[in-house]
């Protein structure tokens, strides 16, 4: 068996589901395809021996954030009539913006071939190694992000509090 076969199966599935996110007519179907897409991306993490990342990806993205997406979408009555009319200018602007994003992404991956994935190390993504990396080498960015999240949490609590009359 070709060792890269699982990768190609997963990759084609993720591309397919990502396309279906855009092409589906019903918004709920789009979200479900997006969830499926997240699963296939999680599969890629597994192929890279990053089990912890896989689990967190599934719990946080597929399990929590997408539930909230679905949650909001179920409330919204998506009718054809209610859809705002898009002018040609907006369409052109959207195309240009998306094209720019594509260029940026391609540019990012351009230098990636020098960082060939070291697939011989099987313990690279385990919890212990990840923890050591986060609390050792990347301690400052990690703590900064946690402060950012704390700020967001405080904000959420403030919003959630009953307003004082």
């Amino acid at each position: 068996m070709n060792p890269s076969l699982p990768f190609f199966v997963l990759a084609s599935l993720s591309v397919f589901s990502a396309l279906m996110v855009v092409l589906s007519r019903k918004p709920v179907h789009s979200v479900l395809y997006l969830i499926f897409c997240f699963f296939t991306i999680g599969g890629h993490y597994l192929l890279l021996n990053a089990q912890f990342l896989f689990a967190v990806h599934i719990i946080v993205y597929a399990g929590a954030i997408m539930v909230l997406f679905l949650f909001t979408l179920m409330f919204i009555n998506m009718n054809k009539e209610l859809e705002p009319h898009k002018t040609n200018l907006i369409k052109v602007a959207a195309t240009v913006a998306a094209g720019c994003l594509l260029i940026v992404m391609v540019g990012v991956t351009k230098g990636a071939e020098s960082l060939a994935a070291n697939s011989t190390r099987t313990d690279v993504g385990t919890v212990a190694n990840l923890g050591k990396a986060l609390y050792g080498q990347y301690l400052l960015p990690f703590e900064l992000i946690s402060i950012l999240l704390l700020a967001a949490m405080v904000g959420a609590v403030l919003l959630g509090k009953k307003s004082v009359e």
């Binding site: 089990q51 896989f54 689990a55 967190v56 599934i58 719990i59 597929a62 399990g63 929590a64 919890v127």
Partner: peptide, 11 residues
Amino acid sequence: IGILYVFGVVS
């Protein structure tokens, strides 16, 4: 990641 797996599946 045993316990995380459980959380993932439950979610």
